[in-house]
Amino acid sequence: MWIYEKKLQYPAWVESCDLRIAKLLFAQYGGPDSELSAGLRYLSQRYNMPIPEAKAVLTDIGTEELAHWEIIATLIYKIIERATLKQLEEASLGAHYVQHGRDLYPHDASGVPWTAAYIQAIEDPIANLHEDMAAEEKARTTYEHLIQSTNDRGVIETLSFLREREVVHFQRFGETLRLVQEHLDRKMYY
């Protein structure tokens, strides 16, 4: 189960009203390598992991990704909260406004809705963990592209925090992969 706590993992802040970056941030809200994909992928893969360390890592990182999803939502919310329809239209958020108003909705930076086809769970722990490591690297790269696309100090600081987390997750998944591999090798010999 999960319990909601009335706080963010990081004090997400925005300096100005960069509506262009708000639109691009949807990449991490509902895109293929978004925080949503990461969270649902890891939480779906955890059930049949062969060792306790792997069950814990997938549960805990999966949970952290949902907290990151909330941080991305907060950045977008803060930027578009006071924007007029005209300003939204100028930033190519007119279509978003027509369908969703200023609400969040899991679509990517160009409006394509999120789909479970972005993620996979196939019981094989080695295959699953390789997918997870690749997902972390793709999310890190997406953050780098986003950071290059804005001058807003608040957005850059917040995204730099999230980028750093992808590096840590990649590291933890790598360690988990090694532990699982050792476990499977032991099983083969005895």
């Binding site: 360390e53 805990d60 952290e64 532990l179």
Partner: peptide, 10 residues
């Protein structure tokens, strides 16, 4: 949270 993840694998 960061320590928690580290302890999961160590």
């Amino acid at each position: 949270i960061d320590l928690n993840l580290y302890l999961d694998t160590h």
